[in-house]
């Protein structure tokens, strides 16, 4: 038995599980649930509702992944993580996939031993200032006091930007978005900087959103994407192609409403047929069911639906698709072909 001395004691209490064996898929299957790391609370991306159910853009990716693996979008355990604990949770095997709006960077991919499986949101760091300040460009911010959230790439970008433009600033590092927002609104800082999506989401909940403007400069590239442990290529493939399937589904017009109908019988579009498993044996190549993509889409809709429901223009967050539109619409969201 692969049970160490300590584990023996703990399994009596049913509190321990062995994990991090080479094949994540087997572990996930044995457990019957996907463990998905999300943020402890980020408007639009992951937050619990009054019933205690997690909701949001990142959360829906996890549900889709659970759909692909189990055919059941409810088979997910959400593990709330802070910026400090997220990478360790992944490398120790506490979670199977990290969907916690994490920026894909070189050192995280190599040194921290993560594998980013793609980008589900193209973001960039922006600035928000009160309109009354009369600032129209981030380069006018010489001497400004800037509120930032710590533990992210944000503070590095900020340091680089001000250094490159040879202007000075005073950083006010804040642990949570809520505190940063309170400080900014009380005028303790002139500028609030974080990912542009976060700024828009935050501004939308102000008492007077029109009194604040987002500056035109986006000072960094923040490709946010889910990550898995380094070294398990099979599992990385499953996560990667689940994301790709959601993106392709939007491109091909497959939605949660029509997916069951389209998957019932082969359609005239071979691309749709391959995606939905009515043609070929694509699922089996990853060790999944032929209907993996159908189940992933049925769990929460295609990429566009997930976007619109959680952070789209009709939500309080109110983000436009922008860079995150399909490539056919001038955006960057582009899936490798499913064939």
């Amino acid at each position: 038995m692969k049970k160490t001395v300590l584990l023996g004691a703990l399994t009596v209490a049913g509190l321990a599980a062995t994990a991090a064996s080479a094949a994540t898929l087997d572990d996930v299957r044995a457990r019957g649930k996907l463990n998905c790391g999300v943020s402890t609370g980020l408007p639009g991306f992951s937050n619990p509702d009054a019933n205690g159910n997690w909701q949001g853009f990142d959360v829906d990716f996890c549900r889709a992944l659970a759909g692909a693996v189990f055919g059941d979008g409810s088979a997910v355990e959400f593990v709330p993580l802070t910026t400090q604990t997220r990478f360790t949770a992944l490398s120790s095997g506490e979670i199977d996939v990290l969907a916690r709006n994490t920026t894909w960077t070189y050192s995280r991919d190599t040194d921290l031993k993560l594998d980013f499986i793609g980008v589900n949101y193209y973001d960039g760091q922006g600035f928000m200032v009160p309109k009354s300040l009369g600032v129209s460009s981030a380069k006018d911010l010489d001497g400004a006091t800037v509120c930032i959230q710590t533990g992210t790439t944000t503070e590095l970008n900020l340091a680089d930007f001000f250094r490159a433009n040879n202007i000075s600033y005073e950083p006010v590092p804040i642990e949570t978005n809520a505190e940063a927002q309170q400080q900014y609104l009380a005028g303790a800082c002139d500028v609030y900087t974080t990912d542009a999506s976060g700024l828009a989401a935050t501004r939308a909940t102000f008492e007077a959103p029109a009194d604040h403007v987002l500056l035109p400069e986006i000072i960094s590239k923040e490709p946010l994407g889910p990550a898995v442990r380094h070294g398990d290529n099979e599992w990385a493939d499953i996560a990667r192609w689940t994301l790709n399937a959601l993106i392709s589904a939007e491109e091909l017009g497959v939605t949660s409403a029509n997916v069951a109908e389209l998957a019932a019988a082969p359609t005239t579009n071979p691309e749709v047929n391959r995606l939905l498993g009515t043609e070929g044996e694509l699922g089996a190549m990853m060790g999944l069911d032929a209907k993996w993509a159908v189940n992933a889409i049925a769990a929460g809709g295609n990429y566009g639906e997930i976007f619109e429901r959680n952070i789209g223009e009709n939500t309080p967050i109110g983000l436009a698709r922008g860079l995150n539109a399909q490539w056919t619409e001038g955006g960057l969201i582009y899936s490798a072909p499913v064939r």
């Binding site: 400090q84 040194d111 710590t150 533990g151 590095l156 006010v172 590092p173 505190e179």
Partner: peptide, 24 residues
């Protein structure tokens, strides 16, 4: 201190540095 953004040793060495370098 981190709760109010005061950069003490927990926030620099134990916070940002660990987070950026992964040397927990």
């Amino acid at each position: 201190a981190i709760a109010v953004g005061y950069m003490d040793v927990r926030a620099t060495l134990g916070g940002i540095t660990i987070n950026q370098t992964g040397r927990e």
